[in-house]
Design a protein around this nucleic acid. Structure first.
Length: 210
DNA sequence: CTTGAGATGCCCT
DNA sequence: GGGCATCTCAAGA
């Protein structure tokens, strides 16, 4: 069943951990594509120097200041889209980046969207890859995850052992660089990178902040 | 197997 | 104008 708004309203670290094992679903006019979420990252508030909202409230970050349960999609490096889900209450800018999925439904469509010739583990093993596979780009920025184009559902799948590590590609973020705000499934081949700089087991979502 | 460079456009100073 | 929450390909060990 589709996750409801209150799921996303929780503290961002809990949402990031809770989304592991849930299923991201994309419906276009012609197909349904779905994948199990195996890797996420939390971006938490204006103080978090890795969070785009640390630059303040701008046209780009506006969506993160809005209500939870909406998509924040932006373009990185001029060519790749990244999909986030907005968390917490309006006025507090935070989101969870979906970094990797394991294909479940519409696998062949997703493979074609990636250009073909890729193994299953090459379909959604990265934030840019999964957006390409699922036809997610900035046209989906700000859409509601309660809508009919993009949502996340709980199919009762076991998440597996969840590990946590520093976030990828945020070396510029000073004291926030080493926060263990990345969550991923242990030994899952669809995770983008298995480098574990100070990684550890993720206990409950509220266990520990740093 | 690992490393490094280039592609490319939007955002904000 | 600088930098970026990435990916691919080609070259080297």
């Amino acid at each position: 069943m589709k996750l409801r708004r209150h799921f996303y309203a929780d503290p961002t670290l809990e949402v990031a951990r809770g989304l592991i094992g849930k299923v991201l679903v994309r419906a276009t006019g012609r197909t349904i594509m779905a994948g199990r979420i195996v890797e996420t990252e939390a971006y938490v508030g204006q103080d978090d120097l890795a969070c785009h909202a640390s630059k303040g409230r701008t046209r780009r970050t506006e969506i993160m200041f809005g209500p939870p349960g909406h998509a924040y999609v932006y373009l990185v490096y001029g060519m790749y889209s990244c999909l986030n889900v907005v968390t917490e209450e309006p006025g507090y800018p935070a989101a969870v980046l979906i970094r990797a999925i394991e294909p479940l439904d519409g696998t062949e469509q997703m493979r074609r969207n990636r250009g073909g010739g890729v193994q299953d583990t090459g379909i959604g093993s990265g934030p840019g890859k999964l957006c390409q596979a699922m036809s997610v780009d900035r046209r989906l920025n700000a859409v509601s995850l309660s809508g009919s184009r993009l949502w996340i559902e709980d199919r009762g799948l076991e998440p597996g052992t969840i590990l946590r590590s520093p976030r990828i590609g945020v070396d510029y973020a000073g004291p926030f660089r080493d926060k263990l705000w990345r969550f991923f499934v242990r030994e899952n081949p669809h995770v983008s990178k298995h480098r574990l700089n100070g990684a550890g087991i993720a206990r409950s979502g509220k266990s520990r902040e740093s």
